[in-house]
Each structure stands twice: as C-alpha cells, then as structure tokens.
C-alpha cells in the first residue's frame, strides 16, 4: 500500500513538474515571439496569442507563416501580400513614415483592400479580427519601440459648391496629381509607366474612372485621408504638409467628378462643363481658392 502511494505521488510530482516546466517554456517562447502583443479597437482588446490558429487558417496562405508576405499563394498574386515584418502599411490615419493605429489595421482587416486579393474579414467576430491585428503587429519589433503616429485631423465635410469643385481641379493641376493619375484621372500621366513600389516592383496609379472604391476605403473621409497621409511603400506621397484642410475637401469634391458612379459632384461638373485640365496652361487662379464664407467647416 505504502509503496504504491509513494509511486503515485512521485508520478504526480513528475507530471506536474513536467507540465510546469513546459508551461514556463511556452510562456518564454511566447515572450520571445512577441505573442504578448496586444491591440485595441472598438472597445475590444486583442491578444496575438489568441490569433495563432486563425492566422494560420485565414492569413498564412498569402502573408506566410512568418508574416513575410511569402505565403504559398504569394507568387500568383499582384499586388503582393503585405510583409508584416517591415511594419510599413498603406492604409493609415497617421503621417508618412509612422506606424498606423490599431484602429487603422482593424478597419483594413474588416474592409479588405480593393483591387487586391485581400478580402473583407468582417465575417470573423470583432474579437477574432482584433486578435489578428495583434498577431500582425507581433511580427515586427517596431511596435515594441515606437508608438503609432498622431492621426491627422479631418474636419467635418463642408457643403458642396461649384466653386469648391473648380478650386479642387486647380489644386489637382497645381499639386501635379496628373503627373501619375493623368489629366482626367485615367492613370495615364507621363510618370505612370515608370512607377515602382518599395520592393522595386512595377505599380499602377489609381484610375479614378475604373473604380468606385479606393484601396483604403470608399467614403469622402477615406479619400481625404488617403492623399493627406499617403500610401507608404508606394509612390503615393503625403500631401498633409502642403494642403490645408479646407483645400483638401475641395480636392475630394473634384476627384469625385472623375469616378464612374453617379455623384452630386459629377452632376455639378456637367453643369459647369468642366473639362480635363491642360497641364501646359498655367493653373487657373490656384492661389486664393474661392471659399464661400457661409460654408466654413464646423469643428468636430
């Protein structure tokens, strides 16, 4: 009897010790692998450790088990899947060169990326998505040493006027958006064919006549954010230093006249008889853009 109890106790101690040891090892491994990484959005807290299975199931096929964008499908895909180890992201609310916020990544996962192989992952629960955001972050140490940039402020959208559309077109010429996007937004500007991304792969500018949605969203605010922060890793620069918030809204209104779907802006452009810009002519009254006083944007 006594020997049996002794044997059992020894066994139990051995098993417990082994379990404890392996648990310690797993924790250490997780720490080494940044699996303690968290993400916060929409009042949900994500944990990288909670997304290991989902990542392998839904993401690794393209983004790779190591997050380097070299999944087995990657060779067949253009644009290429994002390499998370570099922590460079297109869709940000933060200035060029800084990390995006967790909300930025969360909305990219939910929305998907237009004109690419990245689908919307809204079918997954918010908890699953925010866990995946934390998992995406765990691939780069940059998230441990740096904070995301301060998101740019987007004032409330002012009322649409014909003058604003004209001012937006003048800006399109002055800022030389047409050098890549073309005089009428058909992605056929003089520099369009030479563009490459940060991995030196050819990349096309956005064709406004082709698509109703942009890479980083489809609303007016998304469009505003895209050209103000730029798309890091691509030739699209940030215009935040040179375009005032009010002017930015003018540009948003003008860009809407170029798109294929019916828009209020398009209607006004038609009434105005707006023609594509002529890059050889000086920009028409670009400096003091006519701004009706009554339409000042209200602070949020």
């Amino acid at each position: 009897m006594r020997t049996q109890t002794l044997k059992l106790t020894t066994c139990a101690v051995a098993v417990l010790a082994f379990a404890g040891l392996s648990f310690a090892q797993v924790t250490e491994y997780q720490e080494q692998q940044n699996l303690g990484m968290e993400a916060h959005a929409d009042h949900v807290t994500g944990h990288a450790s909670g997304a290991t299975m989902d990542y392998r199931r839904y993401c690794a096929g393209c983004h790779g088990v190591l997050g380097d964008g070299e999944g087995e499908n990657a060779v067949w895909i253009d644009p290429k899947p994002r390499n998370f180890t570099l922590a460079t992201f297109k869709c940000r609310s933060t200035p060029s060169g800084t990390l995006p916020t967790d909300e930025d990544l969360f909305s990219t996962v939910g929305r998907g990326v237009e004109a690419s192989n990245m689908p919307s992952w809204n079918p997954l629960s918010p908890q699953q998505r925010i866990d995946l955001v934390a998992y995406v972050k765990h691939f780069s140490d940059r998230w441990k040493t740096e904070k995301p940039g301060t998101p740019i402020e987007i004032p409330a959208e002012p009322a649409l006027t014909a003058d604003r559309i004209k001012a937006g077109q003048a800006l399109f010429q002055k800022l030389e958006c047409w050098k890549c996007h073309g005089v009428d937004g058909r992605a056929n500007g003089p520099s369009a064919d030479t563009l490459t991304d940060d991995q030196n792969r050819p990349i096309k500018p956005f064709n406004f006549h082709d698509q109703t949605k942009f890479k980083c969203g489809s609303t007016d605010r998304d469009l505003y954010r895209i050209f103000m922060t730029g798309l890091d890793g691509t030739p699209m620069p940030s215009f935040a230093d040179n375009v005032k918030p009010d002017e930015a809204w003018d540009l948003v209104f003008y860009l809407r006249t170029l798109q294929p779907m019916h828009t209020k802006e398009k209607e006004i452009a038609k009434q105005l008889g707006l023609k594509p810009i002529n890059p050889n002519a000086p920009a028409p009254a670009a400096a003091p853009a006519p701004q009706p006083q009554s339409n000042e944007p209200k602070p949020q």
Binding site: L86, S96, G97, P237, S238
Partner: peptide, 30 residues
C-alpha cells in the same frame, strides 16, 4: 517650378523608416 515627391528608402525592416512627402513649387522646407 515643378512638384517633387521626396521618397527616401532606408533598408526595409531597419531602424530608419521610409517616408514619402510631396513638395509642390514654393512649399516651405521639410
């Protein structure tokens, strides 16, 4: 008299990070 976009490309994954800003003619220095 033309717009440039200034786009430095440090080693990817290194301690310096890529940025990309437009600079139309007459803009203040970055």
């Amino acid at each position: 008299q033309t717009s440039h976009n200034i786009h430095p490309m440090p080693k990817p994954g290194g301690p310096n990070h890529e940025w990309n800003k437009s600079q139309p003619p007459g803009s203040p220095p970055i």
